[in-house]
Design a binder for these strands. Structure first.
Lengths: 187, 187
DNA sequence: GACCGCATGTAATAGGTTACATGATTCG
DNA sequence: CGAATCATGTAACCTATTACATGCGGTC
C-alpha cells in the first residue's frame, strides 16, 4: 500500500491532478517510487471513495478540465498512522545482477555492451540529480531551507549516493568482464 | 519474467528442489532478487510444463521425497536469449524515503527510531555479506577462482557497496532529523 | 508433548504492467 | 498536416503477497 502513502505525501507537498502526479512520479518522487498514470488514476479513485482525498473540478482555458486532488483530514490521519508503524527494510531487486551471474553460462564478454549502456543511464541520472540539487537546494537562486525542504534534500542526497555507488560498481563489473575475456591487465 | 531467469541461473549453478531454491532466495541469489516459496513452486510448475526444466523424484531417508529440478536444453536456450536482450535499467523503490519526506507533515523526530532500526538491519546484512565474502572468495579456505565464481564475487561486491552506501546515507538522515529536532550541533 | 526443519502445495487478494481508447490544443 | 502535450480513463493480464493447509522425523 505504499503507493497510497507516496500519493498522500506528494499531495500534501502540493495538490494536483492525476496527470500532474504521474509527471511527479517521473521526477522528484519517482527517484524512489515509481508508478504509471493508469495505476495512479485507479488509486486516486479508490482513495477518493474512501474519503482520504478531496477533489475539485478545475476548468482551464486552452486545456482540458482537470480534477485537482488534495488530502482530506482522514488522509492526513492515515499518513500519520503509517508513519508511526514500522516497515520492513527492503531488499534489492536488481535484474542486471541476475544477468551478470547468468553470464557464466554464456559468453561473459557479450554482456559488456549492456553493462556500459546501464552505466550511461546511471551517469545521466546522477547528472540530473546533481543539477536538481544545485537548482533546488545548494545554488544561489534556491529558496531558504525549512524542515520540509531539508527532508527532501536528504532523500535526494540518497539518490545521488546510490547513483555514485552504482557507477563505481558497474566499473568494477566491466573490469571483471574484461579480465575474464582473456587479457589479464597488469595488476 | 525475471524470476524465471533467476531460477534458471540458480539451477544452472546447482540443481535443486523448490524448497532448496526458496532457501537460496533467502541467501545468495536473494541478495539481489527475492521470492517466496509459494511463488517459486508456481513458477517451477509452469517452467516444467513449458519444457524448460527437467525433474527427478528423489527419495530420501529420514526426510520427505523431493522433486529435484535441473535446466533442460530449451531452458538454457531461453536464458541465453534473455542474456542477449537489453533490459531497462531499473529505478529504486525505497519505502523509507517516502516516510522521510512524509515526516515533514508529522513529527520528524518520531522517525529517528525507525531509521535506527533500519540502520541496524543494514549493518547486519553488511556483516553477513562480508563474512560470506571471506568464506567463499577471499579467505584461506576459499576454492580457487574460476569465471563463474568471479562473476558471483562481483555481484556480492555490489551488495557490499550497496549496504555501505546505505549505512552512510542513514547516518546522514539521522543527523538531519536531529538537526531538525532543535539543537543545531556545532558545524 | 511442543516445536523446528524438510517438503509441497492451494486460494484469495493486492499490486503492477501493457495495450487500447478518446479528444482538445499548441507548435513547427 | 502531423506530432507533442494536456488530460482522463478501461480492460486484460501478469506478478507477488498473505493466509491457510498437510505430514513426517528429529530434538528438547
Amino acid at each position: 500500500m505504499a503507493l497510497d502513502h507516496a500519493i498522500l505525501v506528494s499531495l500534501l507537498e502540493r495538490p494536483g491532478s492525476g496527470y500532474e502526479l504521474a509527471r511527479r512520479f517521473e521526477r522528484s518522487i519517482g527517484y524512489f517510487w515509481t508508478a504509471t498514470h493508469q495505476q495512479i488514476y485507479r488509486v486516486l479513485r479508490r482513495m477518493e471513495a474512501e474519503g482520504l482525498l478531496d477533489v475539485r473540478e478545475v476548468a482551464q482555458q486552452g486545456r482540458p478540465d482537470k480534477r485537482e486532488y488534495s488530502v482530506a483530514a482522514p488522509g492526513r490521519a492515515a499518513l500519520s498512522r503509517w508513519l508511526h508503524e514500522p516497515i520492513e527494510p527492503e531488499s534489492l531487486r536488481h535484474e542486471l545482477a541476475v544477468k551478470i551471474r547468468g553470464a557464466a553460462f554464456d559468453e561473459p564478454a557479450a554482456l559488456a555492451g549492456e553493462v556500459e549502456r546501464h552505466r550511461r543511464v546511471h551517469a545521466e541520472r546522477l547528472a540530473h540529480y546533481l543539477a536538481g540539487q544545485e537548482r533546488d537546494f545548494t545554488g544561489p537562486g534556491a529558496p531558504p531551507p525549512d524542515p520540509g525542504r531539508e527532508l527532501q534534500h536528504v532523500v535526494l542526497r540518497g539518490g545521488i549516493a546510490y547513483e555514485r555507488m552504482t557507477l563505481d560498481w558497474l566499473d568494477d563489473v566491466l573490469a571483471t568482464l574484461h579480465r575474464l575475456a582473456g587479457g589479464l591487465p597488469p595488476s
